[in-house]
Design a binder for these strands. Sequence first.
DNA 1: ACTTTTAATCGTAATTTTACGATAATAAAA
DNA 2: TTTTATTATCGTAAAATTACGATTAAAAGT
Lengths: 110, 110
Amino acid sequence: MGATKTEEFTLADITIAKYAKALGHPARIAILRILLERTSCICGDIVEELPLSQSTVSQHLKELKEAGLIKGDIEGKKVCYCIDAQAWKEAQQLLQVMFGKYKPCDTSCC
Amino acid sequence: MGATKTEEFTLADITIAKYAKALGHPARIAILRILLERTSCICGDIVEELPLSQSTVSQHLKELKEAGLIKGDIEGKKVCYCIDAQAWKEAQQLLQVMFGKYKPCDTSCC
DNA sequence: ACTTTTAATCGTAATTTTACGATAATAAAA
DNA sequence: TTTTATTATCGTAAAATTACGATTAAAAGT
């Protein structure tokens, strides 16, 4: 036991959960904020901005990459990270639709 | 090691990560969808709709509750779950603002 | 009072995540 | 070519997550 039963759910739920999971750590939110701040994407000094070691930041970057939310292109000695426009929009849309489905309930219990 | 360095980040990042983490599993997305479907919130048959055992579903419900996204009121023999309007709106807003910050980058690398 | 129903909690096991230092790997600079 | 800078990966350890069966707790029904 312990392994997530991913197969048993709908693709929509799996996809939204994948994106949400990637967003589920303050360090990764912080990384995304750094990438969101710039219009250009020459970025390689993410490590200095975070209270974590280089290897740990690299790991978080990997997870964001695996979720599809960011891309990393080798630019000489450094690696240039930026947000993946397509995945970003998909995640945004999926979450937006889900959050928009809420309607205040009419029974007394809540 | 292994413990998340939660203290070192901004409250905004911690909060958004907390909500995202709660959304980071297909089962919990499925649960939220079930709750979103109804305008009333007499719900106690969430277990039947999921391919998981009762104890596992209960655990997922607990995590959603701890993140603040849902509430559970005891209604006689059953427990009545529903979405917490305030937390829901906060999560929605935080995510919306963050996702809205994206602007396509102008350099060649991406 | 006893039984049934419903949901939480406990105990346990496997897996995954988080984190770091140390070590590669790669490309630019000297 | 050797050195330096930058990032990824490996190895490892602690902690958290996921999952389930068994048990407990509480309320309702008999």
